[in-house]
Design a protein around this nucleic acid. Structure first.
Length: 355
DNA sequence: AATGCGTGGAC
DNA sequence: TGTCCAAGCAT
């Protein structure tokens, strides 16, 4: 231990109180709003999450309002933010809090962690921010700050390396003010000790920081895992009918669970011929073909084309639609949709732009 | 414990 | 164009 605990936490909290951004969830100690902000901000930058937080806080002022909302409405509110399991778990968690805890979040780390969508990080964050529990948070920012300050070169993608970081944090976090310590660590990482071009010239820890002393800012933290990207080609069928356009809700074990999109045929290249049987092709009339859409996800690169078709008569093609339902323009507007589908609709169907 | 899950922005 | 990152969680 190279840095004195009291000196460290005192400087950090002082830095935080003078440099923190004014954000709505920092104006309250209500566990509901703190929880809401933490779920929204998982793997998400403040600038991206802020408008969603404001919409949710306005639409659902209490945990009861959220618990009573239909899930598709919650997903529609979440549309465009990504990682949609967060929205489903947010909704499930609200129901849990209402049913199991009478609408009040428990002031206990293990009880918080057992709730849907709340893991180690979020339980610590809510615990310290809302209830003053002395549990350190360890997110991407804190990993970086600690790795640089103490010269820790463990691979942060390896779950086993968490231990050494928590050992340091347990030494540093003050019982008296764990909330501002945790906020300070993350804010310091997010705005000062940044991944690229950290501001070492005017840093409160410049004399102690191992990375600064040894000029290893760009080597720390060590993160070895590399993502492999799956390439997929989507042929979306935009089937027009008098009732509207056919859409379906996506199921589990694939991207965008719970969101609505069109009947989908995957193939090696853009082609209706290779994806459909001959008799199905004779059953439909091709009205339009969109430009190719490229959509990038963390683990997938999707090339999509939207084929606008109309059924010529009843026949084999109907099987593709299964139990799908046709929606008119206003109904489609209110369905939660992947960004890719929403982009297409905005460019080709809707004149109205939300969010 | 290794994988899968979105979207947007910086460089 | 590609690469990396961002207040993680569930399985």
């Amino acid at each position: 231990m190279r840095i004195d605990q009291k000196s460290f936490s005192k400087r950090l909290i002082n830095w935080y109180l003078h440099n923190k951004r004014e954000l709505p969830w920092r104006e309250t100690t209500d566990p509901y709003f703190i929880w809401l902000s933490e779920i929204i901000l998982q793997q998400t930058r403040v600038e991206q999450g802020l408008p969603y937080y404001l919409n949710f806080a306005d639409k659902y002022p209490t945990v009861f309002d959220l618990a009573n909302a239909p899930e598709v409405e919650v997903l529609r509110m979440w549309q465009g933010l990504g990682y949609y399991s967060r929205a489903r778990n947010l909704h499930a968690c609200a129901k849990q809090v209402v049913e199991e805890y009478n609408g009040k979040f428990p002031a206990d780390f293990n009880k918080l962690k057992s709730l849907k969508g709340i893991g180690e990080y979020t339980a610590s964050a809510i615990g310290s921010f809302a209830f003053g529990l002395p549990t350190p948070v360890l997110d991407g920012n804190v990993f970086r700050v600690i790795a640089r300050l103490f010269g820790i070169n463990d691979d942060i993608a390896n779950p086993k390396s968490k231990k050494s970081f928590y050992e340091v944090l347990d030494q540093l976090i003050p019982e008296s003010d764990p909330g501002n310590f945790n906020q300070g660590m993350m804010e310091f990482g997010a705005t000062h000790c940044t991944p690229k071009n950290p501001n070492c010239e005017s840093c409160i820890f410049s004399t102690e920081c191992i990375a600064n002393q040894t000029n290893q800012q760009n080597q720390l933290p060590v993160k070895l895992k590399k993502v492999k990207v799956r390439k997929r080609t989507f042929n979306y069928l935009v089937v027009l009918s008098e009732q509207g356009v056919y859409m379906k809700q996506r199921g589990p074990k694939d991207i965008w669970e719970g969101l609505f999109d069109f009947p989908l045929l995957e193939s090696e290249t853009f082609s209706l011929e290779s994806a459909l049987k001959k008799e199905q092709l004779t059953n439909l009339v091709l009205l339009d073909q969109s430009e190719p859409y490229k959509h990038i996800l963390t683990h997938q690169r999707i090339n999509a084309m939207f084929w606008v078709v109309q059924l010529s008569d009843f026949g084999p093609f109907e099987e593709i639609l299964g139990d799908m339902k046709a929606y008119n323009e206003n109904e489609m507007l209110n369905l939660p949709k992947p960004k890719l589908v929403d982009n297409y609709l905005k460019e080709h169907f809707f004149s109205l732009h939300l969010i």
